[in-house]
Amino acid sequence: MANLTTTASATHRPRLKGVVFDMDGTLTVPVIDFAAMYKAVLGDDEYRRIKAESPSGIDILHHIENWSPERQQKAYETIADHERRGLDRLQIMPGATELCGFLDSKNIRRGLITRNVKAAVDLFHERFGMTFCPALSREFRPYKPDPAPLLHICSAWEVLPGEVMMVGDSLKDDVVCGKQAGAFTCLLDETGRYDFPEYANVNLKPDFKVSSLTEVYSLLNDRFDLAP
C-alpha cells in the first residue's frame, strides 16, 4: 500500500480513464450508525461474535442472505429504516464537488457503486446536482465486494479495469471489489482507523490511502497519465 506522500519512482505513469466512487462515507459524510444497525439486525451477542471473527467489518447483506424469508424481510426493513434516517442528514463530503469538477475538466469518467438503495442514489444526485454514470445501487446483484459491479461499469465505458480507480472508505467492500476486478484502489481513511494492527494482515490492501478527498488531486496528478 502506498501513501499519498510517497513519490513515484517509475517514469511511466499508467493511463487513467475513469474513477468509480463509493457513496456513503466517501462522496457523502458518514451519517449511518452501522454498529447500531448491525446490533438491531443481529442482536448484541451475535453482533459481538461476528465482529470478533471479522475485524475488517461485518458484511450484513451477505450474512442475512441465507436466513428464512420472514427473518430476512424483517432484517431488510431494519436496514432500510436506518438508511432512511441517514438520508435526512445527507451531506456532501468536503472536496467531493471540487474533485468531480477536476475529473470533468480532464474528461475522466466517474461512476458510483453503493450498497445503499436506488432511492438514496437518486436523492444524492438531486440534492447535490452531480451525476455519476453508471450509478449502481443495492438493486444491482451481486453487490460489493464482488467485482461484478465494477466490471459492469468498465464494460459500459469500454475501458479496461486497469484504466480505472475505485475510491471508497471500506477495506472489505470497496478495496476488495476494486482489487478483484483488477482496478487501482484508493482507500479513504479520514480517522486513521485502518492503521490499527488488526488490519495489518488483510489479504487485499489498497494501492493508495488518503485521509481526505482533497488529497486525491495530488495522487492523480503525480501517479497517473490524465491526458485526454
Rank of each mutant, 00 (worst) to 15 (best):
Q73W: 02
T28Q: 08
A36R: 12
H152I: 05
L4R: 12
D189R: 01
P197C: 10
Y76E: 12
D146A: 13
T131E: 12
R13H: 11
H125C: 13
Y76C: 01
A156S: 14
F34C: 09
H125I: 05
V20L: 01
V117F: 11
P94R: 12
L4D: 12
T78L: 13
F102H: 03
K179T: 14
P161I: 04
T7S: 14
E126I: 00
D195R: 15
H125G: 05
L123R: 07
S68F: 00
D207A: 03
D33V: 07
E158P: 00
I64Q: 07
D174K: 06
K179D: 09
V29Y: 07
Y143A: 14
N203E: 14
E65W: 08
H82T: 04
K106Q: 07
L4Q: 13
E83A: 00
E77P: 06
P206D: 10
G101K: 08
M37W: 08
D33T: 03
N221R: 11
N221S: 12
D33I: 06
F224A: 09
D81H: 13
W67L: 11
P228D: 13
P147R: 03
E65A: 13
A156M: 06
M166H: 02
A120R: 09
Y217F: 15
T97V: 12
G111I: 02
S218K: 15
T191F: 05
Q91I: 00
F21M: 02
Y47R: 03
E126A: 14
A8M: 12
V175F: 04
T114Y: 00
S9P: 02
E83C: 04
T5F: 15
A96T: 10
L213M: 12
K118L: 12
D33S: 11
L61E: 11
V31C: 13
L188K: 02
F196V: 00
P149Q: 02
V175E: 10
K144T: 07
R138T: 07
R89N: 13
P14K: 02
R109Y: 05
G57I: 11
C100E: 09
R110I: 02
V121D: 01
P147G: 01
A80S: 13
A120Y: 01
T6S: 14
E70A: 14
N66V: 08
V216C: 08
A96S: 11
G25L: 08
V19I: 07
G178H: 06
T131P: 04
A35S: 12
L4T: 10
M1H: 13
I153S: 10
S56K: 15
P30E: 05
E98I: 05
R141S: 14
D122K: 01
W67A: 00
V202W: 09
R127M: 08
R109I: 00
N107M: 03
A135H: 04
A181F: 03
L226Y: 05
T5R: 14
H125D: 13
V216R: 02
L219P: 02
D59C: 11
E46A: 15
A227W: 05
M165P: 04
F128W: 02
D24E: 11
C154T: 09
M93R: 12
R85C: 05
R71L: 10
